[in-house]
Design a protein around this nucleic acid. Structure first.
Length: 262
DNA sequence: ATGGCTGGTAGAACCAGA
């Protein structure tokens, strides 16, 4: 059985209803993992997804900020919700796919502006979040896929200018090292880089603060799709939908899609 | 090197994103 999984930091699912529909109609993923839905569960726009055939929706939302949702046109079971900061923020939801593989949808904290946990508590919270994810990941036994906005661009070719971003939260050595430890804790396979090998530049996010994002191309690869080693041979047909950065009123992140033969 | 923009919510000399 083939299953197609997409992930997208949507930066408000309500503000983005038109382009979410465009994406689902054009790409027909079986499962869509959204981050930054920015909506309380009670007022989630269920009708939009129901109309498009996505009858299974598991939410971990909150008012105003953050929020994740996993939406599917195939049956998904669960869900479980980890609070790796222990502060009530809605940043994770896990579900079980048909056939039993776990699908973990995560929104790692951005971490504020200053890469110093004494000056900027948000940076410390981000590091702690990834540290606690690692504690969870190293005991994980089942085959799993973990997707989402990790808010860390690990490789030099994951940012538009490695040297210029060494002090910029998302690409600092301490964050890159922590992400490497998370990856090593389960031998996670970075499917983005399996399909777009280094040293090719590969970005999934471009700031709104550029007149012409495509021309200036000051992007970062903040969004990731990782899978357990046993699932790596099952992965095919990876795509990053760069055109979506220009759709209507766009998100600053683009969606990625992978098909797994499970 | 800096600043640039966007959404939610309140009705901001706002906050947060990254």
């Amino acid at each position: 059985m083939a299953i197609t999984i997409a992930t997208w930091n949507i930066n408000s699912v309500r503000a983005r209803a038109d382009i979410v529909e465009q994406f689902l109609v054009q790409h027909q993923p079986d499962v869509l993992c959204l981050q930054e839905t920015k909506v309380a569960n009670e007022i989630f726009p269920h009708a939009l997804f129901e109309r498009l055939g996505y009858a299974h929706r598991l939410l971990n939302g909150q008012r105003m900020h953050h929020g994740v949702a996993t939406i599917a046109r195939v049956p998904i079971e669960g869900a479980w919700r980890y609070d790796w900061q222990d502060n009530g923020e809605a940043r994770h939801i896990g579900v079980r796919l048909p056939g039993g593989v776990l699908l973990e949808n995560v929104y790692v904290p951005a971490g504020g502006d200053v890469p110093d946990r004494t000056q900027n508590p948000k940076f410390g919270q981000k590091l702690d979040f990834v540290e606690r994810m690692t504690r969870w990941s190293e005991t994980l036994k089942e085959p799993a896929v973990i997707v989402g906005d990790f808010n860390i661009a690990p490789l030099e070719c994951d940012v538009w200018n490695h040297k210029a971003l060494l002090d910029v939260v998302s690409h600092t050595p301490v964050e890159v090292e922590l992400l490497a430890r998370l990856q090593a804790s389960h031998d996670w396979i970075d499917l983005g880089r399996r399909f777009v090998p280094a040293p090719e530049k590969f970005f999934t996010w471009w700031s709104y603060r550029n007149n012409d994002w495509r021309a200036s191309d000051r992007g970062r690869r903040l969004d990731h799709i990782w899978c357990s080693p046993s699932l790596a041979p099952a992965a095919r047909d990876f795509a990053a939908v760069k055109d979506a950065r220009d759709w209507g009123k766009p998100s600053d992140h683009i969606p990625q899609i992978v098909t797994l033969d499970l």
